[in-house]
Amino acid sequence: MSNETILIDDYVVNINDLNKSFGSNHVLRGIDLHVQRGEVVCIIGPSGSGKSTLLRCINMLEQPSSGNIVVLGRELTHIDCDIDEARTRIGMVFQQFNLFPHMTALENICVAQRKVLRRSKAEAEMKGLQLLARVGLTEKADAYPGQLSGGQQQRVAIARALAMDPDVMLFDEATSALDPELVGDVLNVMKALAEDGMTMLVVTHEMGFASNVATRVVFMDGGVIVEQGPPSQVINAPQEDRTKSFLSSVLNH
């Protein structure tokens, strides 16, 4: 009994037998995934394998068809769960950045602090400026998203998510929409975040990042987790044929 309590406290994300269908398209087929505090889990796999859908289920942007998801001890799939409150603890970064175009970088970072967490303007702005400094964009506080490069927008988006002081961060192909020369800046911010001990789930195609930063790599294909383990195992010495063929198509060209 006491063991179970410790387990729940230690695990940030607990996913049990998660299924998700879009109409007749069965995208996730019985996913079990358990992520401990401080882990950096990179989810890799071919497109259409369900990795983004899995990530979007973790903050309920997609409604699971069945199964249960427990994040930070809250059962999100329970009918009584206050999903808005739970989401403040779960940061998310999107492929298309999704900054609010009618607000400056600083306002983007402050708006949810003010409206959701009810922080004072001064408090929110102080936090916002700290975070902008952390992602290296102090001088862009008053710039609108349209005036920023993709890489800068994505770093603002990371700062915006961090402003809520989340316990876990979800990255949904955060660098896939970026020009190649802008990817590095964003990955550096993510790496620094990982080194600070943030629990992260990262859907990515960046195998270098997965090798160097992940504590665990999860390979998905066809809506199931095919293989998972430390990067030295999954990326450098995969056991499953599907993992091998995916990696050879990604790494060899």
Binding site: L61, D84, T88, I90, G91, Q96, N98, L99, A157, M164
Partner: peptide, 15 residues
């Protein structure tokens, strides 16, 4: 308005 705007706002805990 792109759907991502609503998703980003909801992901920050806005109702």
């Amino acid at each position: 308005v792109p759907k991502g705007q609503m998703e980003a706002a909801r992901s920050l805990g806005m109702s």
